[in-house]
C-alpha cells in the first residue's frame, strides 16, 4: 500500500542530496495524513531507497498532533524537546520532558514511544529522581466505556 505523502513547510530549507539529508529551520510544520509535527529544526534522512525516511524534529518544545483514524477514537497530542518519526513503523519517539495526552490521560516521561496505529504508548524515566514516568488518569467523566 503506497505510503502516505509527507508535506513539510518551513522558513528555509537546505536540501543536500548527496548526503541524503535535508534540514529545515524556522517554524517547521510536517504533515502526513492525520499526523502533524511542528518545531524549530527538522532533519530528514533517507534510510533506504523505497521512500522510507527518518525525521528528527527539535523544538522548544517540538509538538505532535494525531487525529483519530476511526470515529470515536481519541485525539493524541504531545510535545518534547525532540521528536523522532519514521514513516515505516508508524512509531514516534519523544525525548526530553516528553508529554503525551490522550483521552483525558496525560503521560510524562523522559522517553515516550507512541505507536500511531496500535495506539500503544510506552514511557521510560530519566536518570534523575524527578524524571520518573508519571501518568495522570482522569476520573471516569462520562466517556463511553465498553
Amino acid at each position: 500500500q503506497q505510503p502516505l505523502p509527507i508535506h513539510i513547510e518551513s522558513n528555509n530549507a537546505d536540501l543536500s542530496q548527496q548526503r541524503g539529508t535535508s534540514t529545515y529551520t524556522g517554524n517547521v510544520v510536517l504533515t502526513r495524513g492525520g499526523l502533524t509535527l511542528t518545531g524549530n529544526k527538522l532533519v530528514i534522512t533517507r534510510i533506504n531507497d523505497r521512500g522510507n525516511i527518518k525525521a528528527v524534529l527539535d523544538g522548544s518544545p517540538a509538538k505532535f498532533d494525531k487525529q483519530p483514524d476511526r470515529e470515536g477514537d481519541d485525539v493524541v497530542t504531545g510535545h518534547a524537546s525532540q521528536i523522532e518519526y519514521a514513516n515505516n513503523d508508524s512509531t514516534i519517539v519523544l525525548r526530553g520532558n516528553a508529554v503525551v495526552r490522550r483521552g483525558g490521560d496525560e503521560i510524562n516521561g523522559q522517553v515516550i514511544r507512541h505507536n500511531l496505529d496500535t495506539e500503544r504508548t510506552q514511557a521510560e524515566r530519566g536518570s534523575s529522581n524527578n524524571e520518573r514516568v508519571r501518568i495522570t488518569i482522569q476520573p471516569e467523566s462520562g466517556k463511553d466505556q465498553p
Binding site: 516521561g109 495506539e119 500503544r120 504508548t121 510506552q122 514511557a123 514516568v133 501518568i135 476520573p139
Partner: peptide, 19 residues
C-alpha cells in the same frame, strides 16, 4: 480526584496501563 501512576517504565494500551 485524579489517579496518578508514577513508575520507572509504563505503557498504556486502551484502558490498561502497565507500570
Amino acid at each position: 480526584a485524579d489517579s496518578t501512576l508514577i513508575a520507572d517504565q509504563a505503557s498504556l494500551q486502551n484502558e490498561v496501563a502497565e507500570a
